[in-house]
Design a protein around this nucleic acid. Structure first.
Lengths: 132, 132
DNA sequence: TTGATTGCAAACTATTTGCAGAAAG
DNA sequence: CTTTCTGCAAATAGTTTGCAATCAA
């Protein structure tokens, strides 16, 4: 009854993961493409996208920042925490004030920090019902 | 020497802000478009985008989640905090472990929470130099 | 052998922009 | 009046997808 998919370790997939692991720069897909192309000049951007997606689905890599392509807007301009649904990408306000963690100056990597965004991720009531 | 721009309060701008303030749903640009079109059927999507951008620049609204259009990928799959540059959108790892804040069950709005992302926002050393 | 994976190109989605005319101040 | 702002449509940016060929197991 279970549909067990078999994964293969193509050269492309191997190199993409290796290159991604070499850096801590959190590259975009086209930056990964550039990195990998130095080793495999004929790789396609589509393959890079497919494999990054695959690696994330396997827990071998992560997307930085929230899922969902579209930007969302908040008429409440005072900073506050959000909860985002993993499934439908809906965003709700956290109804309590959370103290933003402070970073010691030596942990700021030279950044001039202006604010801290706290975003919980989970599954909203509606989507919990649908997923059974 | 200062170039002082004068802003106008067009009907469109007024309605967009009013509608955005009526809801706590954190709508996408096209959801705002739908809301506003019920009042001004001839408004264009471009105007909605331009005004949302404008309202954010004036501090009257906010974008939810990080700036920068492209997704970024992290070869380090263990959850950890990030710092993102407001100017160049570069992302760095926070070098210390931060305890994720806990949310009391009654503050979860029915969401089943799976994780918490902490992202600082600021200006990276390179961009500080350029901005003078 | 066979089904997952690739390269390629076209399609798609979200957002931005140029321009001529409308309207706020 | 002047200059910002709008509607429209076309352009751009980022990502996804269909397909025939290729390749890992």
């Amino acid at each position: 009854m279970e549909e067990q998919t078999r994964f293969r370790l193509s050269k492309q997939r191997k190199v993409i993961l290796e290159e991604l692991r070499k850096v801590t720069t959190h590259p975009t897909a086209d930056e990964v493409y550039d990195m990998v192309r130095k080793i495999m000049p004929r790789i396609s951007l589509g393959t890079v996208y497919r494999n990054l997606e695959f690696l994330c689905s396997q827990g071998l890599a992560r997307k930085v920042g929230p899922a969902g392509a579209q930007k969302r807007f908040d008429g409440n301009a005072t900073p506050h925490a959000h909860i985002r649904c993993r499934v439908c990408h809906r965003v709700a306000d956290v109804p309590v004030h959370l103290e933003a963690p402070m970073l010691a100056p030596e942990d700021c990597m030279g950044f001039e920090i202006e604010e801290c965004n706290i975003e919980f991720e989970g599954i909203c009531p509606d989507c919990q019902r649908k997923t059974c």
